[in-house]
């Protein structure tokens, strides 16, 4: 919305929520990046740090929720404003989930240290986490600028993440089946890929909320 609100405070409050989301997004992105780095280079301290970041992310989630709540109480926003107020609550929840997956992923590092996965799997997982990180970066950019095309692009990227996931699952299942590699490592590779795929889904959800804020259409498929 280019037109400023008559109540300047309202625009200010809305912007504040937005900046909290972006800050949270940046933190989650860092966490995810660090988690994928530590995944195949186990460092106990680092894993602990990443796990503890989760508390901070939860704090952000709470902050966004209470800001949105008070804004609704004070201004009773309508139409775009209402969606722009409600969306951050959803977005924050999605980001929080992303953070949770990053935390879980980091915890897998110890297992991979004991039973290292196949090198091609490492490459695929790295490719996948890079793709997910690009998606996260893009969706935050789209959220900042209100760029619904970029948001649509993020949803398109999710397809390649899904393909990578399928690829890893098939390959790891096969390796574990014909015992060409340590079965435990293979199972954990599948789990990591699954987490990253979920992260992709959550980012996709965020991009849907961005679209909904600006167009009013809910893209989630339903009956």
């Amino acid at each position: 919305m280019e037109t400023p609100h008559i109540v300047k405070k309202f625009d200010k409050n809305l912007d504040k929520i937005k900046s909290v989301i972006l800050e949270m997004g940046a933190l989650v992105a860092r966490q995810l990046e660090d988690a994928s780095e530590v995944l195949f280079a186990y460092d106990k301290k680092e894993v602990r740090r990443i796990t503890e970041l989760d508390l901070m992310i939860n704090g952000f989630h709470k902050d966004v929720h209470s800001r949105a709540e008070i804004l609704i109480v004070r201004r009773q926003p309508m139409a775009f404003d209402l969606r722009a107020t409600l969306a951050p609550i959803e977005v924050a929840r999605e980001l929080e989930r992303v953070g949770d997956y990053a935390k879980t992923m980091a915890a897998f590092a110890e297992t991979f240290d004991e039973s290292p996965p196949a090198s091609e799997h490492i490459a695929l997982i790295n490719e996948m986490s890079a793709a997910v990180l690009v998606m996260l970066g893009d969706v935050l950019q789209a959220y900042l600028t209100g760029d619904i095309e970029l948001a649509a692009n993020v949803r398109a990227q999710d397809l390649s993440v899904d393909i990578l996931n399928d690829k890893i699952r098939d390959s790891a299942t096969k390796m574990a089946g014909d015992s060409t590699h340590d079965a435990k490592a293979c199972i954990y590779v599948i789990l990591v890929a699954q987490k990253l795929e979920r992260v992709g889904d959550h980012i996709t959800n965020v991009s849907r909320y961005i679209n909904q804020v600006y167009t009013g259409d809910d893209l989630k498929r339903s009956l």
């Binding site: 919305m1 037109t3 926003p77 309508m78 139409a79 404003d81 209402l82």
Partner: peptide, 19 residues
Amino acid sequence: IFTTPKDERTQNYITGRIG
């Protein structure tokens, strides 16, 4: 009208933006 108005003037008016 109050959730997804089609016209921008409506949107501006109901959200409290000068239209």
